Simulated assay, not measured.
Amino acid sequence: MSPIAVLVVEDEAIAAAAHAELVQRLSGFTLVGVARSCADARRILRTSPADLLLLDMHLPDGHGLDLLAQLRLEGHGCDAVAVTSVRELDVVRRAVSQGVVSYLLKPFTFAGLRAKLEQYADYRARLSASGADVVQGEIDQLLGSLRTADEGAGLPKGMSPETLALVTAHLRGAGQARSASEVAAECGLSRVTARRYLEHLEASGVLERRPRYGGAGRPEVEYRWR
């Protein structure tokens, strides 16, 4: 089975680079390009067809779903995973009606995006293995492969997706490195709990960890959003 060709459509330079890096690291996927606008996406797809778009909603020259509709009119049958901070119900409904196969809210971890891509790969593999006609059970399995049964699945025992989202959003919006003690105080957590989530995010690749010098004694560890 040939690799799944992915086009990243994201206007934020850091996010676009991170998404592209993850795609390139994952077995079974290949990156066809990074588009920073609707016009970029259409230009790239003219010469480099994609199976899947990692699609932001807010683009400098239009809405992600309007781009998807235009691509459909132009004959592009690529699927899309929405990767966005947009939470409005009407946008989610439009996304579903336009064939968006998965929806991932920012902020998220690399592990969350990787899970969405792996679910899509499983869906494609099941689709390829199916015959021309399918029975109900096969349809259920196909659609089920695009869903996450437990949003906390994949997290270490004792960690919650809600607290992970809180710490992720805090670090992403901080604009500077923070220590476990600072995150604990600012998020209302114990220092031990804050450090555990910070180390999980560092292991996932979204934070960088380094020593903070300046005080007496051992240097404190600080974490910064990549």
Score class of each variant (00 low, 15 high):
L166V: 15
P60G: 00
R36T: 11
R114C: 05
R226N: 07
E182W: 03
G188M: 03
S181F: 08
V206P: 09
E208D: 06
A50T: 09
G112L: 04
S190T: 09
L31D: 13
E199P: 03
A216Y: 11
D66Y: 05
P60K: 03
E74D: 13
A111Y: 08
Y103Q: 04
Y120I: 02
G28A: 06
D51R: 08
E222L: 05
L171E: 00
L155K: 08
L22T: 13
G144H: 14
L155A: 06
E138W: 15
R226H: 04
D61N: 00
S97T: 11
V86G: 01
S48C: 06
V101A: 02
D56C: 03
A180L: 01
S102H: 12
P107G: 00
L143G: 12
I139E: 12
E182P: 01
V91W: 09
R209G: 02
L45K: 12
E21N: 14
R210H: 12
V221G: 00
A13C: 10
L65E: 07
S128I: 10
H63E: 14
L198H: 01
Y103K: 03
E74H: 08
R178H: 09
A153F: 12
H19T: 12
E12H: 15
A95H: 04
I139C: 12
P219D: 05
K106E: 06
P161K: 07
L207H: 04
G64Y: 05
D150W: 10
V91T: 15
E21P: 04
R124D: 03
F110R: 10
G75Q: 08
A15G: 15
G154V: 09
M1H: 13
L207E: 03
S2N: 13
L146Q: 12
P60Q: 00
L67E: 06
V134E: 09
R191G: 01
R46L: 06
L155T: 10
Q141G: 15
R226P: 05
H58M: 07
T84R: 03
R209A: 05
G158K: 08
G205W: 03
V101Q: 05
S85Q: 10
T84S: 05
G75V: 07
L113Y: 08
D79N: 09
L164R: 11
L73M: 10
P3W: 07
Q70F: 01
M159V: 04
V86N: 08
S145E: 11
R178L: 14
L68F: 02
A121S: 08
C78I: 05
A125W: 11
M1A: 11
S190K: 02
I14D: 15
L53S: 01
Q119D: 10
D56Y: 02
